[in-house]
């Protein structure tokens, strides 16, 4: 802290100026620190969506937890989905502390999810009909998640950065867990290979959408400028998508798999991957809970929440 001024004596402008100075010099903002309202609101939106996506993200994989084809795979995927719930826990705690001055709690987060006010990530609205999908989620969806999350490891908001540090450490296990499933299938029977290829075809568009629209012109809104200004992240959606291509396309192709986009190639001159844009209108529709599995998964989450209500009420005042 450079200024010896007391906060209550400072004008809003001075506070804002000092805040920007702090984040620009790499200082971390903590939950009790003064922060501009739109910084708080941006963080709440970003982190509660991130957190609830982890919680909802457990559901497509949950299908494959009891069904995993060996004891080792059953244990591995159980641990992996457990981590997703754990990541949700870490992130929701961060979001809940930010919401506290607004009088909101985890109960409100759950209710916002059920009412459709709080959105979750597009990929978790999709179907995962085979064991190949379980592997693909672990490999490429988690791969995409690692790329977006590592981009925020130095976020100006300290609690978020610390949660992400824990999360990214576990994501390394997730990536390898996914690779192990895919590798066994890719090196397996024709039927197993077909399972992976089908999953790649099924998930490709959702993976492109994962990073969000390139700019606001695609979908009408984009928070990326605000998050970059506030040093929550550094790279744009498109930068991240390109990073994903660079890291994963060679690996996908090396296993003899193909991508469902013939236009996909690397433009040496522009140093950019050229690809077919996903249907961004469909993206908007999916995240409004109109994806193939949106209602079923929300229904499951809501049913479980309501069924367990008596437990939360029973221990409401116990101490």
């Amino acid at each position: 802290m450079s200024e010896a001024l007391f906060y209550q004596e400072m004008t809003e402008e001075e506070k804002y100026e000092q805040f920007m100075k702090r984040i620009n010099t790499g200082e971390k903002i903590e939950a009790d620190d003064w922060m501009p309202e739109d910084y708080r609101m941006t963080l709440i939106k970003l982190i509660s969506m991130h957190g609830i996506s982890e919680i909802m993200g457990a559901l497509p994989e949950k299908e494959w937890v009891p069904k995993a084809p060996s004891l080792k795979r059953k244990l591995g995927i159980m641990a992996k989905v457990q981590d997703e719930m754990g990541h949700g826990q870490l992130l929701l705690r961060v979001a809940e502390d930010l919401m506290k001055p607004l009088g909101k709690t985890r109960e409100d987060i759950m209710q916002d999810l059920f009412s459709g006010k709080l959105k979750f990530h597009n990929v978790f609205h999709m179907e995962a009909p085979t064991w190949g999908d379980a592997g693909l989620i672990g490999w490429l969806v988690d791969g995409a998640a690692i790329i977006t999350q590592t981009n925020m490891l130095n976020a100006s908001y300290g609690p978020y950065a610390r949660a992400l540090k824990r999360i990214c450490a576990e994501e390394v296990f997730h990536a390898q867990h996914g690779e192990a499933i895919i590798m066994a299938l890719a090196e397996g029977t024709d039927e197993q290979r077909a399972m992976v290829q089908d999953a790649v075809n099924r998930w490709w568009e959702a993976l492109l959408m994962f990073f969000g629209p390139g700019d606001a012109s695609t979908t009408g809104t984009s928070k990326q400028d605000t998050t970059i200004k506030y040093k929550i992240r550094t790279k744009t959606n498109e930068d991240l998508r390109q990073d994903f291509f660079t890291k994963y396309i060679p690996r996908v192709l090396s296993l003899g798999l193909t991508l469902p986009d013939e236009t996909m190639h690397f433009d040496q001159e522009r140093e950019l991957w050229i690809y077919k844009q996903p249907d961004w209108n469909r993206f908007k529709d999916i995240i409004k809970n109109n994806g193939p599995k949106s209602q079923e998964r929300l229904g499951l989450r809501r049913t479980a929440y309501d069924t367990n209500k008596w437990v939360r009420e029973a221990l409401n005042t116990a101490n």
């Binding site: 457990q82 826990q89 870490l90 705690r93 809940e96 949660a163 824990r166 409401n316 101490n319």
Partner: peptide
């Protein structure tokens, strides 16, 4: 880290597996 629980006994039984699984 922090966690939510209805009381300290339950907080204690949640703590290890939530933050120190590995």
């Amino acid at each position: 880290f922090s966690l939510l629980a209805p009381n300290r006994e339950l907080a204690l039984v949640m703590a290890q597996e939530n933050f120190m699984r590995r």
